[in-house]
Design a protein around this nucleic acid. Structure first.
Length: 743
DNA sequence: GCGATCAGCT
DNA sequence: CACAGCTGATCGC
């Protein structure tokens, strides 16, 4: 056994648990004298208080362990997220509400509620959320913002922009200012487009022909680029050398949404300097500001006009503009540039031929030089597409313009929402040109890459996730937009509706409905439950389903959570005849709360959690009735919540048990995970293992959908397309999964 | 010394 | 397997 290198020590201060470190001496655990006869009573369910599955209410989910992490709690909010308690900081419900409300009155790029399209009543959703802060927030929000108000406000987008501007100014962040300006320009642009739009006008995607009239230019570009990407993928074209691209400077296929004076669309309007067409307007711009001395830097970094607008102050610093004054000057100029850019979008210079054709038409077709209306790929060969996408940001060490193409290529399809500028759980693939970052829930594999330094736009998530993101990562609230549940809102022209994902606290599934595009449902991580079938919009509208396929294999057909909870309850009852028995229940940072809360509630026993865990639980706004079953006093309970990895092996358990040697003679641990239900395993609700005075139960308590549930869900949704979101499967098995699900 | 990132591990 | 992390090493600041 090459265990020598894993001699790790788990300090209680690190793990957040009261166990002391364990060493590698697994030789001697034992205490033979205390080996208890594990009685034969494990199946005596008759002793249990009978309660129906229905009696198992879902407690609000709580975050898990890792108390040590709370060391940096001096973030921005007080832990007490209690319902209306303002706490003085901007983390109060009041302020959260105002955050949402503020969004309510934004048009277009802002988040606007559509009361007339309510999907569900706030409280008729999943029981898990019925008492959630979200629900309450929702109600109050709706009360404060009548339909007409919302609509009026939405129409007055400029006003909204100003309001938001004010809000952000208070935040006083340079980065935010930049983002703000982006927002403002986008909003204005959309309004103008709307004003000019003739009802009869129809703009089609040059690649797929889909009507994209109702999209903002941003969305149009995103849509079209995606079509191009698809085509590129189909054609498997090689990436040409850079000179090719230079011939069409305006062809910024993967560029940012807004147009700009320099973003020319055909060769006739290319800037003169020939192959330096990208750069010369930049140089000129610098010159006009009296900053010609930085020309060299911009040229060296090959920053073209389009990329220029998306530079952040951080970027400028990185490329060598270290002097504060000039950097600030440039940042300021850039923000103005973006506003100007959006304003100029209204000049129909290239649409003379089609008199009533709006600029928006130009915006799309102009990205494709030589493109006269129908899908002509003259200047847009797949090769060039590939070029634009894959070469631009890669070759030099400095700031990556547009995308880092390597990154772009690596971006899995499941975290990109076709037809929108949205990313979902894609912080590993941060791109400067994307502004909308959705986070379905607060588990590391989904927020990985997200750090305090995040400056790529806004993070959209549920309130609970928002709190965790702020608390644990330190993301300022200014960068977080809280999404309401069960209520359609509009973000950047896309209808967005969130529902409880029944996974961990704060987890959501998200329905995206881009204008003129088919709806996409992203499940994040989820466990299908009957309540979801009450969401009618899911049944009728979804075209593409991005699905959590963690257990997409027939071997994973574990029982419902209620059944597993029942099993655990009975087991505890059966083992509890010995007062010197300690029960350990595993949990994650967040997740599995339902299990130990149900144990506490039904058995009417207090459950011990560490102080840090308690603070997280409190943060989630759990009802007092539930909170009363938690205790910080270890001696007050013989049921302890511990991190899952504490239970991962008998070795660890043995070490843990040493801590309790004097007080307990038996340890019974529950390791709740769906993986215990794999191949060759019985379909019993749990498996029991014992070594000496330690008993370990693996119980198939899963917060992901079982295979059966996946099938049911797919049947319910009836999507035309499924994209697996779990990357542990090879591509070939993706299709297999789909066929399995639809069989 | 701290934070971010990554590899290795469970 | 990998659920959802933890731990240590490295690097930049």
């Amino acid at each position: 056994m090459s265990k020598s290198k894993k001699t790790k020590t788990i300090h209680s201060s690190q793990s957040g648990f009261s166990f002391s470190p364990f060493n590698d001496d697994d030789d001697d655990f034992q205490n033979p004298t205390q080996s208890l006869p594990l009685t034969q009573r494990k199946s005596s369910s008759s002793q249990l208080p009978k309660h129906s599955n229905a009696a198992i209410n879902r407690p609000p989910k709580k975050p898990k362990k890792n108390l040590a992490y709370l060391g940096k709690e001096n973030l921005e909010k007080p832990p007490d997220l209690g319902l209306g308690s303002g706490s003085g900081s901007d983390f109060s419900l009041e302020s959260m509400e105002s955050t949402v409300f503020r969004n309510n009155v934004k048009g277009d790029d802002g988040v606007s509620f559509k009361d007339d399209e309510k999907v569900m009543k706030p409280n008729e959703g999943l029981s898990y959320l019925s008492n959630s802060i979200e629900s309450r927030l929702l109600l109050r929000s709706r009360g404060n913002c009548g339909l007409s108000d919302c609509e009026n406000a939405a129409v007055k987008s400029d006003e909204g922009a100003d309001e938001r501007f004010d809000d952000y100014q208070e935040a006083g962040t340079t980065q935010l200012d930049v983002l703000l300006n982006l927002c403002c320009s986008s909003e204005r642009k959309e309004i103008e487009i709307g004003d000019n739009m003739d009802v009869g006008d129809s703009i089609s995607c040059p690649m797929c022909g889909v009507d994209i009239s109702n999209m903002s230019d941003e969305l149009r570009q995103v849509h079209t680029n995606e079509c191009l990407d698809k085509e590129q993928a189909q054609n498997h074209v090689d990436i040409p050398d850079s000179d090719h691209v230079m011939e069409c400077p305006g062809q910024v296929l993967d560029g940012p949404p807004s147009g700009a004076p320099g973003q020319v669309l055909d060769e006739s309007s290319c800037h003169p300097p020939g192959k330096m067409g990208h750069i010369s307007p930049v140089v000129e711009w610098l010159h006009n500001m009296g900053l010609s001395r930085y020309e060299e830097v911009f040229i060296r970094e090959e920053i073209d006009w389009d990329s220029l607008k998306w530079l952040t102050e951080e970027d400028l610093h990185k490329i060598g503009i270290t002097a504060l004054g000039p950097r600030k000057k440039i940042v300021h100029a850039l923000s103005e540039l973006r506003i100007e850019g959006s304003a100029e979008m209204n000049i129909p210079e290239k649409v003379a031929d089609k008199e009533n054709k709006i600029i928006t038409n130009k915006l799309i077709t102009d990205f494709f030089p030589g493109f006269a209306g129908k899908v002509k790929k003259s200047c847009i060969t797949g090769a060039q597409v590939g070029k634009t996408n894959s070469n631009d940001g890669n070759k030099r060490g400095g700031v990556k313009m547009h995308f880092s193409n390597k990154k772009l290529r690596d971006i899995p399809s499941w975290c990109s929402i076709t037809g929108t500028p949205f990313r979902v759980d894609a912080f590993k693939y941060l791109q400067r040109d994307y502004f909308y970052w959705f986070l379905t829930h607060f588990h590391m594999d989904h927020y990985q890459g997200l750090t305090k330094a995040f400056c790529h736009g806004k993070i959209y998530c549920s309130l609970i996730t928002a709190k965790l993101v702020n608390l644990k990562i330190g993301i300022p609230w200014e960068k977080i937009e809280v999404l309401p549940l069960n209520q359609k809102i509009n973000i950047a022209g896309v209808d967005v509706t969130c529902f409880d994902a029944n996974h961990c606290p704060g987890s959501i599934i998200i329905l995206f409905e881009p204008p003129s595009c088919k709806a996409i449902l992203h499940t994040g991580d989820f466990r299908f439950c009957e309540d979801m079938t009450k969401i009618s919009s899911l049944q009728t509208r979804v075209h593409t389903l991005i699905l959590d396929t963690t257990y997409c294999d027939p071997q994973y057909d574990f029982p419902k959570q209620e059944a597993v909870v029942q099993y655990v309850l009975e087991t505890i009852q059966a083992e509890a005849f010995n007062p010197r028995t300690l029960f350990l229940i595993g949990s994650y940072t967040i997740g599995k709360e339902r299990l130990f809360m149900e144990v506490a509630r039904v058995l009417r026993k207090k459950v011990y959690v560490t102080a840090a865990k308690m603070r997280l639980l409190e943060c989630l706004g759990m009802p007092k009735e539930d909170m009363q079953w938690l205790t910080l006093d270890e001696s007050e309970s013989h049921i302890h919540v511990v991190p899952m990895w504490t239970l991962a092996s008998f070795k660890r358990l043995k070490h843990a048990s040493n801590m309790y040697m004097g007080r307990y003679s038996l340890i019974v641990a529950f390791s709740p995970t769906g993986w215990t239900f794999g191949k060759g395993k019985k379909s019993s609700p749990g498996r029991r293992w014992q070594q000496g005075t330690i008993i370990r139960y693996e119980v198939p308590y899963s917060e992901h959908s079982s295979f059966t549930e996946l099938k049911e869900f797919v049947k319910f949704i009836s999507p035309e397309n499924i994209i697996p979101s779990v990357n542990n499967h090879c591509p070939e098995s993706a299709s297999r999964m789909v066929s399995l699900l639809s069989s």
